[in-house]
Amino acid sequence: MSAGLPAAGQRRRLALTGVRGPVAKGRDFTRQALQDWGWDGTETFEDALLLVSELLTNACLHAGGCDELVLTAGGAALRIEVCDGTTTLPARHPAPQRGIPGGRGLYIVERLSDRWGSHTYGTGKAVWAEIEVSRLVSGKAVER
């Protein structure tokens, strides 16, 4: 497999129901998948890890926890999905206030991703974000 070109539609899933430390586990899982796919060493690699952190944190704080993290390497984009057990769709905080924590998670998701959204299914929902593959393979190298 060539670096930066995982098989179209390659998917990895991480069950998180009842797992302690789901945000850290999700970041580690994502880091490994992106390294396996040759998508590490770019600024966008770090953006993808931050997106995972924000989506998982939001599920923990606002949806009673996360059920699953799904990473899909498509031909054009990396899709990050976090599934939880509520059907309440996320909404951006209308006006986060300076100096007061919270209310910025979806703004971060919006800024770092190329697209994001959510959909319900059965008794739960998925909140997703996508990053164009071109950003993952041609980003400026991160100094280590």
Rank of each mutant, 00 (worst) to 15 (best):
D28R: 13
R13S: 08
A76K: 12
F29H: 15
V23H: 08
T42K: 01
L78D: 05
L50Q: 13
V82S: 09
T72L: 12
A48G: 04
F45V: 03
G41R: 14
L106M: 12
H62G: 00
T120M: 09
W116I: 03
T42R: 06
W39T: 03
A7S: 12
V70Y: 02
Q35M: 07
L71C: 05
G99Y: 02
E81C: 09
I80C: 08
H93P: 03
A8S: 11
T17I: 01
F45K: 01
I80H: 05
W116K: 04
I100T: 11
P96F: 00
R11T: 14
A63M: 02
V70E: 10
W39V: 03
T30D: 02
G65I: 04
C66A: 15
L14R: 14
L49Q: 12
L55S: 08
G26V: 03
D67F: 02
P94S: 08
D28P: 01
T30H: 02
G65K: 10
C66W: 02
H93F: 00
G26W: 04
P22I: 01
Q10M: 11
L89A: 15
E46D: 08
Q97F: 00
D67K: 13
T42I: 06
K25C: 09
A24L: 13
T120A: 15
L50M: 12
H62A: 00
Y107R: 12
D28N: 07
P6M: 06
